[in-house]
Design a protein around this nucleic acid. Structure first.
Length: 594
DNA sequence: GCCGTTTTCGGCCCGACTGTTTTCAGTCG
Protein backbone atom coordinates (compact mmCIF):
# COMPACT_ATOMS: atom_id res chain seq x y z
CA UNK A 1 0.00 0.00 0.00
CA UNK A 2 1.04 3.55 -0.61
CA UNK A 3 2.88 5.16 2.25
CA UNK A 4 1.64 8.48 3.58
CA UNK A 5 4.13 10.98 4.90
CA UNK A 6 3.22 13.51 7.54
CA UNK A 7 3.53 16.25 4.94
CA UNK A 8 1.15 14.54 2.55
CA UNK A 9 -1.40 14.06 5.30
CA UNK A 10 -1.03 17.69 6.36
CA UNK A 11 -1.60 18.78 2.77
CA UNK A 12 -4.69 16.60 2.52
CA UNK A 13 -6.15 18.20 5.64
CA UNK A 14 -5.31 21.67 4.36
CA UNK A 15 -7.16 20.88 1.14
CA UNK A 16 -10.04 19.72 3.27
CA UNK A 17 -10.03 23.00 5.18
CA UNK A 18 -9.98 24.98 1.93
CA UNK A 19 -12.85 22.90 0.55
CA UNK A 20 -14.88 23.50 3.70
CA UNK A 21 -14.23 27.24 3.34
CA UNK A 22 -15.60 27.20 -0.19
CA UNK A 23 -18.59 25.18 0.97
CA UNK A 24 -19.27 27.65 3.79
CA UNK A 25 -18.94 24.93 6.37
CA UNK A 26 -18.77 25.87 10.07
CA UNK A 27 -15.63 27.92 10.44
CA UNK A 28 -14.48 26.05 13.51
CA UNK A 29 -14.39 22.84 11.54
CA UNK A 30 -12.14 24.63 9.08
CA UNK A 31 -9.86 25.76 11.87
CA UNK A 32 -9.86 22.23 13.31
CA UNK A 33 -8.55 20.73 10.04
CA UNK A 34 -5.94 23.47 9.71
CA UNK A 35 -4.82 22.92 13.25
CA UNK A 36 -4.55 19.15 12.76
CA UNK A 37 -2.55 19.78 9.57
CA UNK A 38 -0.11 22.12 11.34
CA UNK A 39 0.26 19.77 14.22
CA UNK A 40 0.96 16.74 12.00
CA UNK A 41 3.41 18.63 9.83
CA UNK A 42 5.50 19.58 12.86
CA UNK A 43 5.46 16.15 14.45
CA UNK A 44 8.84 14.52 15.05
CA UNK A 45 7.52 11.00 14.62
CA UNK A 46 5.61 9.40 11.76
CA UNK A 47 1.84 9.56 12.02
CA UNK A 48 1.91 6.00 10.72
CA UNK A 49 4.03 4.92 13.70
CA UNK A 50 1.67 6.64 16.12
CA UNK A 51 -1.17 4.80 14.43
CA UNK A 52 0.70 1.50 14.88
CA UNK A 53 1.09 2.34 18.57
CA UNK A 54 -2.52 3.52 18.88
CA UNK A 55 -1.33 6.94 19.99
CA UNK A 56 -2.98 9.13 17.36
CA UNK A 57 -5.14 10.83 19.97
CA UNK A 58 -2.01 12.22 21.61
CA UNK A 59 -1.49 14.57 18.66
CA UNK A 60 -2.74 18.02 19.64
CA UNK A 61 -5.76 19.05 17.60
CA UNK A 62 -6.54 15.47 16.58
CA UNK A 63 -9.75 14.14 18.11
CA UNK A 64 -12.11 11.25 17.54
CA UNK A 65 -13.19 12.20 14.02
CA UNK A 66 -9.70 12.77 12.64
CA UNK A 67 -8.37 9.68 14.42
CA UNK A 68 -10.98 7.64 12.61
CA UNK A 69 -10.10 9.37 9.32
CA UNK A 70 -6.42 8.47 9.77
CA UNK A 71 -7.30 4.96 10.76
CA UNK A 72 -9.31 4.60 7.57
CA UNK A 73 -6.45 6.06 5.54
CA UNK A 74 -3.90 3.57 6.86
CA UNK A 75 -6.25 0.61 6.58
CA UNK A 76 -7.80 1.30 3.18
CA UNK A 77 -5.63 3.92 1.50
CA UNK A 78 -8.32 6.58 1.35
CA UNK A 79 -10.86 8.48 3.46
CA UNK A 80 -14.39 8.29 2.09
CA UNK A 81 -15.67 11.41 3.83
CA UNK A 82 -12.76 13.58 2.75
CA UNK A 83 -12.88 12.21 -0.81
CA UNK A 84 -16.56 13.03 -1.08
CA UNK A 85 -16.03 16.59 0.16
CA UNK A 86 -13.03 17.17 -2.11
CA UNK A 87 -14.99 15.77 -5.05
CA UNK A 88 -17.23 18.84 -4.85
CA UNK A 89 -14.31 21.16 -5.54
CA UNK A 90 -12.53 21.34 -8.93
CA UNK A 91 -8.89 20.21 -8.56
CA UNK A 92 -7.62 23.36 -10.27
CA UNK A 93 -8.64 25.47 -7.26
CA UNK A 94 -5.78 24.13 -5.16
CA UNK A 95 -2.76 25.23 -7.22
CA UNK A 96 -4.22 28.75 -7.31
CA UNK A 97 -4.02 28.91 -3.54
CA UNK A 98 -0.25 29.23 -3.92
CA UNK A 99 -0.70 32.70 -5.40
CA UNK A 100 -0.44 35.36 -2.68
CA UNK A 101 -3.74 37.09 -2.11
CA UNK A 102 -5.84 34.25 -3.46
CA UNK A 103 -7.72 32.30 -0.84
CA UNK A 104 -10.18 29.46 -1.30
CA UNK A 105 -13.24 31.60 -1.99
CA UNK A 106 -11.78 33.82 -4.66
CA UNK A 107 -9.79 30.97 -6.24
CA UNK A 108 -12.98 28.95 -6.51
CA UNK A 109 -14.89 31.83 -8.00
CA UNK A 110 -12.21 32.32 -10.66
CA UNK A 111 -12.13 28.64 -11.55
CA UNK A 112 -15.89 28.58 -11.74
CA UNK A 113 -16.36 31.74 -13.82
CA UNK A 114 -13.41 31.25 -16.14
CA UNK A 115 -13.82 27.48 -16.47
CA UNK A 116 -10.24 26.78 -15.44
CA UNK A 117 -10.55 23.05 -15.63
CA UNK A 118 -6.97 21.94 -16.09
CA UNK A 119 -5.21 21.74 -12.75
CA UNK A 120 -1.69 21.61 -14.21
CA UNK A 121 -2.15 24.80 -16.25
CA UNK A 122 -4.58 26.61 -13.92
CA UNK A 123 -2.14 29.37 -12.98
CA UNK A 124 -1.11 29.95 -16.61
CA UNK A 125 -4.72 29.92 -17.75
CA UNK A 126 -5.62 32.44 -15.10
CA UNK A 127 -2.72 34.64 -16.13
CA UNK A 128 -3.98 34.59 -19.71
CA UNK A 129 -7.51 35.52 -18.62
CA UNK A 130 -6.13 38.36 -16.52
CA UNK A 131 -4.17 39.73 -19.45
CA UNK A 132 -7.32 39.57 -21.57
CA UNK A 133 -9.14 41.55 -18.86
CA UNK A 134 -11.68 38.82 -18.32
CA UNK A 135 -11.42 39.00 -14.55
CA UNK A 136 -12.48 42.59 -13.88
CA UNK A 137 -15.93 41.83 -15.20
CA UNK A 138 -16.54 39.09 -12.66
CA UNK A 139 -18.71 40.15 -9.74
CA UNK A 140 -16.71 41.24 -6.67
CA UNK A 141 -13.56 41.51 -8.75
CA UNK A 142 -12.51 44.81 -10.30
CA UNK A 143 -9.71 46.57 -12.12
CA UNK A 144 -7.47 46.66 -9.09
CA UNK A 145 -7.96 42.98 -8.32
CA UNK A 146 -7.13 42.13 -11.88
CA UNK A 147 -3.86 44.03 -11.75
CA UNK A 148 -2.93 42.77 -8.29
CA UNK A 149 -3.55 39.12 -9.05
CA UNK A 150 -1.63 39.38 -12.30
CA UNK A 151 1.31 40.99 -10.58
CA UNK A 152 1.20 38.38 -7.81
CA UNK A 153 1.26 35.58 -10.37
CA UNK A 154 4.24 37.12 -12.14
CA UNK A 155 6.14 37.60 -8.88
CA UNK A 156 5.18 34.15 -7.76
CA UNK A 157 6.43 32.49 -10.97
CA UNK A 158 9.64 34.45 -11.09
CA UNK A 159 10.27 34.37 -7.40
CA UNK A 160 10.95 30.79 -6.55
CA UNK A 161 12.90 32.69 -3.90
CA UNK A 162 9.75 33.88 -2.23
CA UNK A 163 8.49 30.33 -1.93
CA UNK A 164 11.58 29.28 -0.13
CA UNK A 165 12.38 30.39 3.35
CA UNK A 166 15.88 31.69 3.82
CA UNK A 167 18.47 30.65 6.35
CA UNK A 168 18.40 32.25 9.77
CA UNK A 169 21.88 33.66 9.21
CA UNK A 170 20.88 35.32 5.91
CA UNK A 171 17.77 36.85 7.46
CA UNK A 172 19.95 38.07 10.29
CA UNK A 173 22.11 39.99 7.82
CA UNK A 174 19.19 41.48 5.91
CA UNK A 175 17.68 42.62 9.20
CA UNK A 176 20.97 44.17 10.28
CA UNK A 177 21.02 46.34 7.14
CA UNK A 178 17.43 47.42 7.72
CA UNK A 179 18.16 48.34 11.31
CA UNK A 180 21.12 50.41 10.23
CA UNK A 181 18.90 52.21 7.74
CA UNK A 182 16.10 52.83 10.23
CA UNK A 183 18.49 54.12 12.88
CA UNK A 184 19.27 57.09 10.65
CA UNK A 185 15.76 58.49 10.99
CA UNK A 186 15.15 60.82 13.90
CA UNK A 187 11.45 59.94 14.15
CA UNK A 188 12.37 56.41 15.15
CA UNK A 189 13.13 55.95 18.85
CA UNK A 190 13.55 52.22 19.07
CA UNK A 191 13.80 49.26 16.69
CA UNK A 192 13.16 45.57 17.38
CA UNK A 193 13.26 42.49 15.20
CA UNK A 194 10.19 40.37 15.78
CA UNK A 195 8.49 37.36 14.24
CA UNK A 196 10.26 34.12 13.42
CA UNK A 197 13.64 35.85 13.35
CA UNK A 198 13.26 36.92 16.97
CA UNK A 199 12.26 33.36 17.82
CA UNK A 200 15.35 32.13 15.93
CA UNK A 201 13.50 29.68 13.73
CA UNK A 202 15.95 27.77 11.50
CA UNK A 203 14.54 29.28 8.32
CA UNK A 204 12.77 32.60 7.92
CA UNK A 205 9.96 33.70 5.62
CA UNK A 206 9.16 37.37 6.12
CA UNK A 207 11.19 39.76 8.21
CA UNK A 208 9.19 41.61 10.87
CA UNK A 209 10.30 44.84 12.45
CA UNK A 210 8.66 46.99 15.12
CA UNK A 211 9.51 50.56 15.96
CA UNK A 212 8.51 53.23 18.45
CA UNK A 213 7.72 56.55 16.88
CA UNK A 214 5.74 59.62 17.84
CA UNK A 215 5.18 60.43 14.18
CA UNK A 216 4.22 57.09 12.69
CA UNK A 217 3.27 58.54 9.34
CA UNK A 218 6.71 60.02 8.76
CA UNK A 219 8.42 56.88 10.06
CA UNK A 220 6.42 54.69 7.68
CA UNK A 221 7.15 57.00 4.79
CA UNK A 222 10.85 56.77 5.56
CA UNK A 223 10.69 52.98 5.79
CA UNK A 224 9.08 52.88 2.34
CA UNK A 225 12.12 54.63 0.86
CA UNK A 226 14.27 51.58 1.61
CA UNK A 227 15.26 50.04 -1.77
CA UNK A 228 12.35 47.81 -2.78
CA UNK A 229 10.57 46.19 -5.70
CA UNK A 230 7.13 47.25 -4.54
CA UNK A 231 5.12 48.41 -1.60
CA UNK A 232 2.73 45.62 -0.75
CA UNK A 233 0.64 47.59 1.65
CA UNK A 234 0.84 50.80 3.59
CA UNK A 235 -1.44 52.00 6.36
CA UNK A 236 -1.37 54.19 9.45
CA UNK A 237 0.01 51.45 11.71
CA UNK A 238 2.57 49.89 9.41
CA UNK A 239 3.68 48.89 5.95
CA UNK A 240 5.03 45.91 3.99
CA UNK A 241 7.58 46.10 1.24
CA UNK A 242 9.10 43.52 -1.07
CA UNK A 243 12.89 43.70 -1.35
CA UNK A 244 14.95 42.94 -4.45
CA UNK A 245 16.13 39.70 -2.89
CA UNK A 246 12.53 38.47 -2.77
CA UNK A 247 12.11 39.04 0.96
CA UNK A 248 9.05 40.73 2.37
CA UNK A 249 9.58 43.10 5.27
CA UNK A 250 6.70 44.06 7.54
CA UNK A 251 7.01 47.15 9.69
CA UNK A 252 4.72 48.00 12.59
CA UNK A 253 4.73 51.27 14.48
CA UNK A 254 3.50 51.82 17.98
CA UNK A 255 3.66 54.40 20.73
CA UNK A 256 5.88 53.72 23.68
CA UNK A 257 3.03 53.06 26.09
CA UNK A 258 1.66 50.12 24.08
CA UNK A 259 4.96 48.86 22.71
CA UNK A 260 5.14 45.78 24.96
CA UNK A 261 1.77 44.49 23.78
CA UNK A 262 2.90 45.04 20.22
CA UNK A 263 6.16 43.17 20.71
CA UNK A 264 4.25 40.28 22.21
CA UNK A 265 1.71 40.15 19.42
CA UNK A 266 4.12 40.57 16.54
CA UNK A 267 6.68 38.05 17.81
CA UNK A 268 4.17 35.22 17.60
CA UNK A 269 4.14 32.43 16.90
CA UNK A 270 0.57 32.18 15.80
CA UNK A 271 0.15 29.07 17.91
CA UNK A 272 1.64 30.75 20.94
CA UNK A 273 -0.68 33.71 20.60
CA UNK A 274 -3.67 31.45 20.22
CA UNK A 275 -2.69 29.51 23.34
CA UNK A 276 -2.10 32.73 25.26
CA UNK A 277 -5.32 34.37 24.14
CA UNK A 278 -7.37 31.25 24.84
CA UNK A 279 -5.98 31.17 28.36
CA UNK A 280 -6.66 34.89 28.81
CA UNK A 281 -10.27 34.34 27.79
CA UNK A 282 -10.76 31.91 30.66
CA UNK A 283 -9.93 34.94 32.84
CA UNK A 284 -12.33 37.09 30.77
CA UNK A 285 -9.42 39.02 29.33
CA UNK A 286 -8.98 39.82 25.68
CA UNK A 287 -5.50 40.41 24.28
CA UNK A 288 -4.42 42.45 21.31
CA UNK A 289 -1.39 44.35 20.09
CA UNK A 290 -2.73 47.39 21.94
CA UNK A 291 -2.95 45.78 25.34
CA UNK A 292 -5.33 43.85 27.53
CA UNK A 293 -9.01 44.55 28.12
CA UNK A 294 -11.77 42.82 30.03
CA UNK A 295 -14.16 41.03 27.71
CA UNK A 296 -17.05 43.39 26.96
CA UNK A 297 -15.19 46.46 28.14
CA UNK A 298 -13.75 49.08 25.83
CA UNK A 299 -10.98 50.21 28.12
CA UNK A 300 -7.61 48.80 27.07
CA UNK A 301 -4.76 48.57 29.54
CA UNK A 302 -1.53 49.30 27.64
CA UNK A 303 1.85 47.72 28.36
CA UNK A 304 5.14 49.34 27.53
CA UNK A 305 7.11 46.10 27.98
CA UNK A 306 6.45 42.43 27.45
CA UNK A 307 7.41 41.23 30.89
CA UNK A 308 4.57 43.23 32.48
CA UNK A 309 2.21 41.93 29.83
CA UNK A 310 2.89 38.29 30.70
CA UNK A 311 2.95 38.95 34.42
CA UNK A 312 -0.42 40.72 34.30
CA UNK A 313 -1.81 37.43 32.99
CA UNK A 314 -0.37 35.68 36.04
CA UNK A 315 2.54 33.93 34.39
CA UNK A 316 6.29 34.18 33.97
CA UNK A 317 7.87 35.99 31.06
CA UNK A 318 8.24 33.53 28.19
CA UNK A 319 11.46 33.83 26.14
CA UNK A 320 10.76 34.21 22.39
CA UNK A 321 12.42 30.89 21.52
CA UNK A 322 9.80 29.04 23.56
CA UNK A 323 6.80 30.72 21.97
CA UNK A 324 5.71 27.89 19.70
CA UNK A 325 2.62 26.56 21.45
CA UNK A 326 4.47 23.53 22.84
CA UNK A 327 2.98 23.93 26.31
CA UNK A 328 5.01 26.99 27.31
CA UNK A 329 1.91 28.86 28.49
CA UNK A 330 1.02 26.13 30.98
CA UNK A 331 4.60 26.01 32.22
CA UNK A 332 4.70 29.79 32.61
CA UNK A 333 1.51 29.74 34.67
CA UNK A 334 3.00 27.11 36.97
CA UNK A 335 6.33 28.97 37.07
CA UNK A 336 8.01 25.90 35.62
CA UNK A 337 9.68 27.27 32.53
CA UNK A 338 13.16 25.90 31.89
CA UNK A 339 16.17 28.11 32.66
CA UNK A 340 17.41 28.13 29.07
CA UNK A 341 21.04 27.66 28.13
CA UNK A 342 22.82 30.87 27.09
CA UNK A 343 25.75 31.64 24.84
CA UNK A 344 27.74 32.80 27.86
CA UNK A 345 27.43 29.30 29.37
CA UNK A 346 29.52 27.76 26.60
CA UNK A 347 33.02 26.75 27.69
CA UNK A 348 34.22 24.90 24.62
CA UNK A 349 33.54 23.56 21.15
CA UNK A 350 34.13 19.92 20.24
CA UNK A 351 33.67 20.02 16.50
CA UNK A 352 36.44 22.01 14.84
CA UNK A 353 38.32 21.27 11.62
CA UNK A 354 41.88 22.49 11.03
CA UNK A 355 44.02 22.56 7.90
CA UNK A 356 46.21 19.69 9.15
CA UNK A 357 46.22 17.32 6.22
CA UNK A 358 45.45 13.82 7.34
CA UNK A 359 44.26 12.99 3.84
CA UNK A 360 40.57 12.71 4.62
CA UNK A 361 37.81 11.78 2.21
CA UNK A 362 35.96 15.00 3.11
CA UNK A 363 37.08 18.61 3.33
CA UNK A 364 39.84 20.05 5.47
CA UNK A 365 39.53 23.21 7.49
CA UNK A 366 41.08 26.47 6.38
CA UNK A 367 43.05 27.47 9.48
CA UNK A 368 45.82 26.04 11.60
CA UNK A 369 45.35 24.83 15.13
CA UNK A 370 47.17 27.97 16.30
CA UNK A 371 44.65 30.19 14.58
CA UNK A 372 41.80 28.12 16.01
CA UNK A 373 43.32 28.49 19.47
CA UNK A 374 43.54 32.27 18.99
CA UNK A 375 39.85 32.35 18.22
CA UNK A 376 39.02 30.03 21.12
CA UNK A 377 40.95 32.39 23.34
CA UNK A 378 38.90 35.36 22.11
CA UNK A 379 35.78 33.36 22.89
CA UNK A 380 37.17 32.63 26.37
CA UNK A 381 36.88 28.87 25.94
CA UNK A 382 38.44 26.50 28.47
CA UNK A 383 38.78 23.71 25.98
CA UNK A 384 38.36 22.72 22.36
CA UNK A 385 38.04 19.45 20.49
CA UNK A 386 39.76 19.14 17.12
CA UNK A 387 37.54 16.84 15.10
CA UNK A 388 38.96 16.57 11.60
CA UNK A 389 37.44 14.08 9.20
CA UNK A 390 38.98 10.60 9.38
CA UNK A 391 41.72 9.71 6.88
CA UNK A 392 40.10 8.28 3.77
CA UNK A 393 39.81 4.52 3.98
CA UNK A 394 39.90 4.09 0.23
CA UNK A 395 43.36 5.58 -0.23
CA UNK A 396 45.14 4.15 2.80
CA UNK A 397 45.92 0.82 4.36
CA UNK A 398 45.04 0.36 8.02
CA UNK A 399 48.71 0.62 8.96
CA UNK A 400 48.97 3.94 7.13
CA UNK A 401 45.90 5.30 8.90
CA UNK A 402 47.27 4.29 12.28
CA UNK A 403 50.53 6.01 11.52
CA UNK A 404 48.75 9.18 10.30
CA UNK A 405 46.68 9.27 13.46
CA UNK A 406 49.72 8.81 15.69
CA UNK A 407 51.62 11.63 14.00
CA UNK A 408 48.58 13.88 14.16
CA UNK A 409 48.17 13.35 17.88
CA UNK A 410 51.81 14.20 18.51
CA UNK A 411 51.51 17.28 16.34
CA UNK A 412 48.44 18.67 18.10
CA UNK A 413 49.89 17.92 21.50
CA UNK A 414 53.05 19.82 20.69
CA UNK A 415 51.25 22.77 19.05
CA UNK A 416 48.84 23.10 21.95
CA UNK A 417 51.63 23.06 24.51
CA UNK A 418 53.59 25.66 22.62
CA UNK A 419 50.55 27.89 22.10
CA UNK A 420 49.67 27.75 25.81
CA UNK A 421 53.25 28.49 26.88
CA UNK A 422 53.51 31.37 24.46
CA UNK A 423 50.25 32.93 25.68
CA UNK A 424 50.50 31.96 29.36
CA UNK A 425 47.10 30.28 29.10
CA UNK A 426 45.53 26.90 29.61
CA UNK A 427 43.18 26.02 26.82
CA UNK A 428 42.80 22.25 26.83
CA UNK A 429 42.94 20.64 23.41
CA UNK A 430 41.18 17.31 22.99
CA UNK A 431 42.41 15.36 20.02
CA UNK A 432 39.21 14.06 18.53
CA UNK A 433 38.07 12.91 15.11
CA UNK A 434 34.88 13.00 13.08
CA UNK A 435 34.47 9.45 11.91
CA UNK A 436 32.09 8.33 9.17
CA UNK A 437 29.52 5.71 9.97
CA UNK A 438 29.69 3.57 6.87
CA UNK A 439 26.51 2.18 5.28
CA UNK A 440 26.93 -1.12 7.09
CA UNK A 441 27.24 0.67 10.44
CA UNK A 442 30.95 0.09 10.92
CA UNK A 443 33.23 3.06 11.57
CA UNK A 444 35.74 4.41 9.06
CA UNK A 445 38.60 4.08 11.54
CA UNK A 446 40.48 0.91 12.44
CA UNK A 447 40.24 -0.17 16.10
CA UNK A 448 43.94 0.33 16.81
CA UNK A 449 43.75 3.94 15.62
CA UNK A 450 41.41 4.80 18.50
CA UNK A 451 44.49 4.72 20.74
CA UNK A 452 45.50 8.07 19.24
CA UNK A 453 42.32 10.04 19.96
CA UNK A 454 40.69 11.19 23.17
CA UNK A 455 37.19 10.67 21.80
CA UNK A 456 35.31 10.68 18.49
CA UNK A 457 32.27 12.19 16.88
CA UNK A 458 30.50 9.76 14.59
CA UNK A 459 28.41 11.02 11.74
CA UNK A 460 26.89 10.13 8.40
CA UNK A 461 28.11 11.64 5.14
CA UNK A 462 27.02 9.14 2.52
CA UNK A 463 24.27 6.73 1.43
CA UNK A 464 21.35 8.75 2.77
CA UNK A 465 18.76 6.81 0.83
CA UNK A 466 18.05 3.95 3.17
CA UNK A 467 14.89 2.72 4.76
CA UNK A 468 14.13 4.00 8.20
CA UNK A 469 14.90 0.61 9.73
CA UNK A 470 18.23 0.25 7.92
CA UNK A 471 19.27 3.77 8.87
CA UNK A 472 18.35 3.24 12.52
CA UNK A 473 20.37 0.03 12.67
CA UNK A 474 23.28 1.70 10.90
CA UNK A 475 23.37 4.55 13.42
CA UNK A 476 23.00 2.34 16.47
CA UNK A 477 25.73 0.01 15.21
CA UNK A 478 28.00 2.99 14.64
CA UNK A 479 27.33 4.44 18.07
CA UNK A 480 28.00 1.10 19.71
CA UNK A 481 31.21 0.29 17.84
CA UNK A 482 33.71 1.77 20.29
CA UNK A 483 33.71 3.13 23.83
CA UNK A 484 35.41 6.32 22.64
CA UNK A 485 32.37 7.28 20.58
CA UNK A 486 31.08 10.25 22.56
CA UNK A 487 29.10 12.41 20.16
CA UNK A 488 26.71 11.69 17.33
CA UNK A 489 27.29 14.57 14.90
CA UNK A 490 24.58 16.42 12.91
CA UNK A 491 22.23 13.52 13.57
CA UNK A 492 19.54 13.91 10.89
CA UNK A 493 21.93 14.85 8.09
CA UNK A 494 19.64 17.61 6.88
CA UNK A 495 20.87 20.53 4.82
CA UNK A 496 18.37 23.36 5.15
CA UNK A 497 16.53 24.10 1.89
CA UNK A 498 18.61 21.45 0.12
CA UNK A 499 18.15 18.06 1.69
CA UNK A 500 15.63 16.67 4.14
CA UNK A 501 16.99 14.85 7.13
CA UNK A 502 16.80 11.10 6.83
CA UNK A 503 14.15 9.02 8.50
CA UNK A 504 15.17 7.15 11.61
CA UNK A 505 13.59 5.76 14.74
CA UNK A 506 14.72 8.52 17.10
CA UNK A 507 13.31 6.89 20.21
CA UNK A 508 15.59 3.89 19.67
CA UNK A 509 18.57 6.12 18.99
CA UNK A 510 17.87 8.23 22.07
CA UNK A 511 17.72 5.04 24.12
CA UNK A 512 21.19 3.98 23.00
CA UNK A 513 22.58 7.50 23.41
CA UNK A 514 21.26 7.74 26.94
CA UNK A 515 22.51 4.30 27.93
CA UNK A 516 26.00 4.86 26.53
CA UNK A 517 26.11 8.53 27.54
CA UNK A 518 26.70 9.60 23.95
CA UNK A 519 25.81 13.22 23.35
CA UNK A 520 23.63 14.19 20.42
CA UNK A 521 25.12 17.13 18.63
CA UNK A 522 23.38 20.35 17.88
CA UNK A 523 25.42 21.36 14.89
CA UNK A 524 25.43 25.16 14.83
CA UNK A 525 26.25 25.56 11.16
CA UNK A 526 23.45 27.74 9.73
CA UNK A 527 23.20 25.26 6.86
CA UNK A 528 22.39 22.43 9.24
CA UNK A 529 21.05 23.42 12.67
CA UNK A 530 20.86 19.72 13.34
CA UNK A 531 19.46 18.22 15.63
CA UNK A 532 16.38 20.22 14.74
CA UNK A 533 14.73 21.97 17.70
CA UNK A 534 11.71 19.66 17.88
CA UNK A 535 14.02 16.64 18.23
CA UNK A 536 16.14 18.47 20.79
CA UNK A 537 12.97 18.83 22.83
CA UNK A 538 12.22 15.11 22.49
CA UNK A 539 15.80 14.10 23.28
CA UNK A 540 15.93 16.15 26.46
CA UNK A 541 12.58 14.84 27.58
CA UNK A 542 14.00 11.37 26.99
CA UNK A 543 16.94 12.18 29.26
CA UNK A 544 19.70 12.52 26.65
CA UNK A 545 22.54 15.02 26.88
CA UNK A 546 23.75 17.14 24.01
CA UNK A 547 26.67 19.21 22.80
CA UNK A 548 26.43 22.39 20.77
CA UNK A 549 29.27 22.57 18.24
CA UNK A 550 30.13 24.98 15.49
CA UNK A 551 31.55 22.41 13.03
CA UNK A 552 33.82 25.28 11.99
CA UNK A 553 35.84 24.75 8.82
CA UNK A 554 37.36 28.21 9.28
CA UNK A 555 37.95 30.12 12.48
CA UNK A 556 35.22 32.69 11.81
CA UNK A 557 32.64 29.90 11.81
CA UNK A 558 33.27 29.40 15.51
CA UNK A 559 31.02 32.43 16.01
CA UNK A 560 28.08 30.52 14.55
CA UNK A 561 27.75 29.00 18.01
CA UNK A 562 24.95 31.49 18.71
CA UNK A 563 22.71 29.79 16.16
CA UNK A 564 23.29 26.45 17.83
CA UNK A 565 22.40 28.00 21.16
CA UNK A 566 19.14 29.24 19.69
CA UNK A 567 18.30 25.70 18.54
CA UNK A 568 19.01 24.42 22.05
CA UNK A 569 16.83 27.12 23.57
CA UNK A 570 14.03 26.35 21.12
CA UNK A 571 14.31 22.74 22.27
CA UNK A 572 13.98 23.82 25.94
CA UNK A 573 17.61 22.95 26.74
CA UNK A 574 19.04 24.05 30.06
CA UNK A 575 22.69 24.51 30.84
CA UNK A 576 23.01 21.09 32.48
CA UNK A 577 21.71 19.37 29.32
CA UNK A 578 24.66 20.63 27.27
CA UNK A 579 28.06 19.04 27.93
CA UNK A 580 30.11 21.93 26.62
CA UNK A 581 28.75 24.21 29.32
CA UNK A 582 30.59 22.06 31.87
CA UNK A 583 33.92 23.11 33.30
CA UNK A 584 36.87 21.18 31.87
CA UNK A 585 37.16 18.94 34.92
CA UNK A 586 33.48 18.02 34.89
CA UNK A 587 33.36 17.65 31.11
CA UNK A 588 36.44 15.40 31.14
CA UNK A 589 34.69 12.82 33.30
CA UNK A 590 32.29 12.29 30.45
CA UNK A 591 34.50 12.73 27.39
CA UNK A 592 37.63 10.99 28.60
CA UNK A 593 36.77 8.75 31.56
CA UNK A 594 39.79 6.97 32.95
C1' DG B 1 -14.10 19.23 14.68
C1' DC B 2 -11.70 19.94 19.22
C1' DC B 3 -11.65 20.39 24.06
C1' DG B 4 -12.10 21.08 29.54
C1' DT B 5 -8.67 24.40 37.06
C1' DT B 6 -15.76 27.94 35.71
C1' DT B 7 -17.97 23.66 30.67
C1' DT B 8 -18.93 16.44 28.08
C1' DC B 9 -21.98 21.55 25.90
C1' DG B 10 -20.90 25.63 24.13
C1' DG B 11 -17.56 27.94 23.33
C1' DC B 12 -13.52 28.52 19.88
C1' DC B 13 -7.58 34.77 19.14
C1' DC B 14 -7.73 39.22 17.30
C1' DG B 15 -7.12 42.89 14.36
C1' DA B 16 -5.44 45.29 9.88
C1' DC B 17 -5.90 46.06 5.25
C1' DT B 18 -8.00 45.90 0.61
C1' DG B 19 -11.35 46.18 -2.81
C1' DT B 20 -15.74 46.64 -4.06
C1' DT B 21 -18.68 47.39 -1.26
C1' DT B 22 -22.79 51.38 0.76
C1' DT B 23 -21.78 47.71 5.60
C1' DC B 24 -18.74 43.68 4.42
C1' DA B 25 -16.15 39.51 2.89
C1' DG B 26 -11.82 37.71 1.98
C1' DT B 27 -7.13 37.29 3.09
C1' DC B 28 -3.27 37.66 5.92
C1' DG B 29 -0.29 37.40 9.96
Amino acid sequence: MKAYSNLQIAELFRKMAAAYQILNENRFKIIAYERAADSIEHLTSDVKDLWDDKKLDEIPGVGTTIVSHLDELFRTGSIKHIDSVLAKIPESVFPLLLVPGLGPKRAYKLVDELHLNNKTTAIDDLEKALREHKVSTIESFGEKSEQDILQNIVTFKKGAIKEKRILLSEADQIAAHLIEFLKKNKNIERIDILGSLRRYVATIGDIDIAIISKDSEKAIEYFCTYPHVKIIEQGPTGASILLHNGRQVDLRVQEKRSYGAMLQYFTGSKNHNIALRSYALTKHLSLSEYGIKRVGSKEIKPFSNEKDFYEYLGMDYIPPELREGRGEVDHAIKHELPALVELADIKGDFHLHTNYNLEPSHDLGLHSIDEILDEANDLQYEYIGISDHNPSTGNHTETEIISIMKKRQEYYKKQAEEWNTRHHKTIHVCTMLEVDIKPDGTLALPDEAFAYVDAVIVSIHSSFAMTKEEMTTRIITGMSSHSKVKIFGHPTGRLLNRREGFEADWKKIFEVAKKKDIALEINASPYRLDLPDALVYDAIKFGCRLTIDSDAHQKEDMNMMKYGISVGRRGWAEKRDIYNTYSYNEMKKWLMPK
